[in-house]
């Protein structure tokens, strides 16, 4: 029983940052932006989140800084891809590498360390115990006692789904991706919608970043996003941006990650660490086989 609870909690923990970043990617996906900068935004968020929490000894300010940091990265993306009309792919790669470089540089410059910075003065984001529910055996251990960000992620999934499909902004967002000219001619600037989708993406990836550096560990290490942004991109592509689908896929990836940890008893850790990436490949494989079947029918 404990193993299963551990597996499920592990799944939730590793799914959270992927899901948050993928929700951000979903918004830009609907707006028709080939946004591959989630990795860099998340890393920026993780760094600034740690910075805010360290200097102000407060996790809410940490989260705020994380969001602002990721928005800063999003603004750079906006400057190059939307304002200067540079290729989105090149902007994304450039921004990701800029983010790695800038956070490494600041880590060195501000904290005088290389590799990683950890300090007891970094205040983590708390876990939330839900009264009543926490006393229920098994279910209570899963539903209650998760990190605050986990619950926020759940809310964000519903909110993004509502935003995209039920609001005027969502309609315009999808129009911007579907046919931007007709949106422009109807009097709504497609570029403005794109800018907003990128800023919202910054908010969500910033939350993801804060979860990385202030969630279960309180430290920042170079390149700590470790490909999660790319996995979230794969998730977005796999379900064509649908938020509910993204949530399911992210949980699946989270599950394989937890499974990897579990398998460490019998396999070298290098192989178990590969699991999420292999799972992404398998998911892409299933997706393309299904697509092929659909096309032949």
């Amino acid at each position: 029983m404990n193993i299963i609870i551990g597996l499920i909690n592990g799944m939730i923990t590793s799914a959270t940052p992927i899901l948050l970043a993928a929700l951000g990617g979903s918004l830009t996906y609907y707006a028709g932006i080939f946004n591959i900068a989630m990795e860099g935004m998340m890393l920026g968020g993780a760094f600034f989140g740690m910075l805010g929490s360290y200097y102000f000894h407060s996790w809410p300010i940490g989260i705020l800084f994380a969001i602002l940091g990721a928005i800063l990265m999003a603004l750079i993306f906006i400057l190059f891809a939307v304002v200067l009309k540079m290729d989105e792919f090149i902007t994304g790669i450039g921004l990701n590498l800029f983010s790695v470089g800038a956070t490494t540089y600041m880590l060195r410059q501000i904290f005088k360390v290389k590799g990683a910075f950890s300090s007891p003065e970094i205040v983590p984001i708390p876990k939330i115990d839900i009264p009543w529910i926490k006393d229920i055996p098994v279910v209570g251990e899963i539903i209650s006692g998760q990190n605050l960000i986990v619950y926020l992620t759940l809310l964000a999934t519903i909110a993004v789904s509502y935003l995209v499909f039920k609001t005027r902004f969502g309609l315009r967002l999808r129009a911007a991706g579907y046919n931007r000219t007709s949106l422009d001619t109807s009097g709504v600037s497609a570029n403005r919608i794109r800018v907003w989708s990128l800023i919202l993406c910054g908010v969500l990836t910033g939350l993801a970043g804060s979860f990385l550096s202030l969630g279960y560990v309180t430290l920042f290490s170079e390149g700590m996003s470790a490909g999660r942004g790319w996995i979230s991109l794969a998730a977005v592509i796999l379900v064509s941006g649908n938020p509910t689908g993204i949530a399911l896929i992210s949980l699946l990836f989270g599950f394989t990650d937890g499974l990897g940890l579990f398998m460490q008893r019998s396999l070298p850790s290098q192989f178990t660490s590969m699991v999420p990436y292999v799972a992404t490949l398998i998911a892409l494989f299933v997706y393309s086989v299904r697509l092929k079947k659909k096309q032949t029918i």
Partner: peptide, 29 residues
């Protein structure tokens, strides 16, 4: 993977990067 299953090399190469990273690390360990 692209040739047989039409999987975009853009994502598969990125995933293979991570896998190669861990694989070579295992090999030297």
């Amino acid at each position: 993977l692209k040739y047989w299953f039409n999987m975009s090399e853009f994502i598969t190469t990125l995933m293979l990067n991570m896998i190669a990273d861990f694989f070579t690390y295992w090999a030297i360990n």
